[in-house]
Design a protein around this nucleic acid. Structure first.
Lengths: 110, 110
DNA sequence: TGACACAGGCAACCATCGGTTGCGCATCAG
DNA sequence: CTGATGCGCAACCGATGGTTGCCTGTGTCA
């Protein structure tokens, strides 16, 4: 039973910088490439690229406002991503537990 | 409260091929680069590289056996990785819940 | 024992990706 | 109008996931 994972979603939240960006966006409600880059150890351009991939998988939405481009987290989609984290985690957890049981059974009978 | 994540561990299990490899190893108990590559859409060499990174972060252990090199999952370390998945998931889950509460409060008072 | 088969390591090469710098364009403020 | 600022685009670089090709070492079998 290999847990079905949306690979695009997963790899989107797989990048540590993107995770921090989502964290920052959630904390402050919204932000631009420039405002985010000020709170991160990377340049505005790098942040812009990341916002691009987050946008493509629907984890954030952009709202043009004047000369700015304000980004905001799509909580539903992020919820879906988080659920996948949980699903994969649970699947492996269950498998590990099963293996541990088998090991104990063997030890008992051996 | 940004959940502390071991970036090496995370990126090790972040790769979809490596996740499948861990799945396969857990399912069959052990395997070699060659045996794994037969069950994956990549070459033996690619698998060997992945086994290298999994080995470096301690997620698998190698046991030379004759002309083979048998790999096996270190369940403790994998457990640690899975726990991190859970931790990150929970952190975001909590934050999403908090935001939802705030949104509801605003709607009620506005 | 000698010849062949097969697992695995090493190296070169390629595409993609995260990151950088540099530049040009648009928009807002004085 | 002019300068500052926010953004997009392009070129470039290093790391990484992947490939093919080749060589070494270890079994196996006649």
């Amino acid at each position: 039973m290999t847990v079905a994972v949306d690979d695009d979603l997963w790899s989107a939240i797989g990048d540590p910088t993107r995770r921090r960006m989502l964290d920052l966006l959630l904390a402050s409600g919204a932000g631009t490439a420039t405002s985010l880059s000020e709170q991160l150890p990377v340049t505005r351009q790098a942040v812009a690229k990341h916002l691009g991939v987050l946008d493509r998988v629907g984890l954030v939405q952009a709202t043009p406002a004047g000369r700015e481009r304000r980004y905001q987290v799509d909580e539903v989609q992020l919820g879906r991503a988080v659920a996948q984290l949980g699903a994969v985690g649970n699947a492996w957890d269950a498998r590990l537990r099963r293996i541990k049981q088998i090991a104990e059974a063997i030890q008992k009978n051996g």
